[in-house]
Simulated scan of single mutants.
Amino acid sequence: MNAAITGWGRYAPDRVLTNQELEQIVDTNDEWIQSRTGIQRRHIVAEGQATSDMSARAARIALDKAGVKPEELDLIVVATTSPDLLLPSTAALVQTKLGAINAGVMDMNAACCGFLYALSAVTAMIRGGGVGKVLLCGAETISPFLNWQDRNTCVIFGDAAGAVILEATEQERGLQSYKLGAIPDTAELLWIKAGATLYPATHERLDQSEQYIQMNGSEVFKHAVRSMVDSSLHVLNQVGKTPADVQLVVPHQANLRIIEAVAKRLNVSMDQVFVNIQEYGNTSAATLPVAIAEAADAGRMQPGDTILLTAFGGGLTWASGVLVWGGK
């Protein structure tokens, strides 16, 4: 039994924040941002718009493509680090918005790797026979957690959501191999320090801007390239393939220089790599499903194609997987 992706969808807020607009907010410029990240613009939620809203928008598109009704869903999973609420899960709110009355609900937090972590878990559930139709969203509302005076972070991130429908199939489709991991003692390299139980949001911590994303970019870069390359080679080897056998690499869209470094070490042409960071920036757990949906809509993936997924994020976490594209 396998878990095929039978539907996909993506959503980005209407509001677009360009590099030129950021020049008016923080000490930066378009050349500096593009040369270091490859980002030209990013999307920002409207007032009152939340992660569940974007998830539901992307989910409706995915459900329509798959021909699945909300009440047919057995499970809804939302991968996110920016939930609507601490309690209940964002998936519970998505269930209500969709009317998916028969679905179980849960969230997955593995930062930028969340979608791939969740994909591996959902695939195992479908193979085990416990569920047959699953909605998996990767969605982030990162903008409220940005310090708009910190040019090392505020120029990088954006808001978006992607969704896929997974269904049981006997065909060789879906995730065929995966490797998940994390690097101990690296939490402080990419984190939001204040606001939870370890460091409550006191006045003193808020005055120090500890409620915003903080990142050691150079250290994250080094860990990211090494982990994405090593895990990619591992999962390809698991299914007896090499990078030359891959039709498309879909990496986490964190930084264009990271993506180019990974491609170079895997010895694959950038023509084989899907890149959309210029439009969305880094949308954390949303980057992979948004990229998958965009690549599918553009005809970049055909039934039976071998797709390499690879990601890296806060934790520090890393993940890679080999996907065979096509419905059931």
Score class of each variant (00 low, 15 high):
Leu180Glu: 00
Ser227Glu: 13
Phe312Gly: 05
Asp84Leu: 09
Ala244Ile: 03
Thr186Met: 04
Ala293Tyr: 04
Gln176Trp: 04
Leu198Gly: 06
Gln49Ile: 04
Ala254Ile: 07
Val105Asn: 12
Asp245Trp: 03
Thr202His: 02
Gln208Pro: 01
Met270Arg: 11
Val324Lys: 15
Thr28Trp: 01
Lys97Pro: 03
Glu21Cys: 05
Trp148Met: 12
Ala124Pro: 00
Ser82Asp: 06
Trp191Gln: 13
Tyr117Trp: 10
Ala59Asp: 12
Glu172Leu: 13
Thr6Pro: 03
Ala163His: 06
Asp107His: 06
Pro289Lys: 02
Ala110Lys: 00
Thr153Asn: 07
Gly48Leu: 08
Leu236Arg: 03
Leu116Pro: 05
Leu166His: 05
Gly314Asp: 07
Glu260Asp: 15
Leu316Thr: 06
Ile192Trp: 06
Gln211Gly: 03
Leu146Trp: 02
Ala118Gly: 14
Lys241Ala: 15
Asp271Val: 00
Thr202Arg: 02
Glu167Thr: 13
Ala103His: 04
Thr202Val: 03
Glu210Pro: 00
Gly114His: 01
Ile259Ser: 05
Glu210Asn: 05
Gly162Ala: 11
Arg265Phe: 04
Val324Arg: 15
Gly128Tyr: 13
Ala311Met: 08
Gly313Arg: 03
Gly174Ser: 10
Ala311Val: 07
Ala285Lys: 00
Gly162Glu: 02
Leu175Thr: 01
His252Val: 08
Val225Gln: 03
Val26Trp: 02
Gly67Cys: 09
Leu309Met: 11
Ile213Met: 11
Ala111His: 08
Ile156Asn: 08
Val229Gln: 05
Lys264Val: 00
Ser55Pro: 08
Ala92Gln: 09
Ser227Pro: 01
Gln247Ser: 14
Glu204Lys: 13
Val290Arg: 08
Leu206Ala: 04
Ala58Tyr: 02
Arg226Ser: 12
Ile192His: 08
Val164Leu: 09
Arg127Gly: 10
Val262Arg: 01
Val155Thr: 15
Leu256Ser: 13
Ser232Tyr: 02
Ala201Pro: 10
Thr80Trp: 02
Gly299Phe: 10
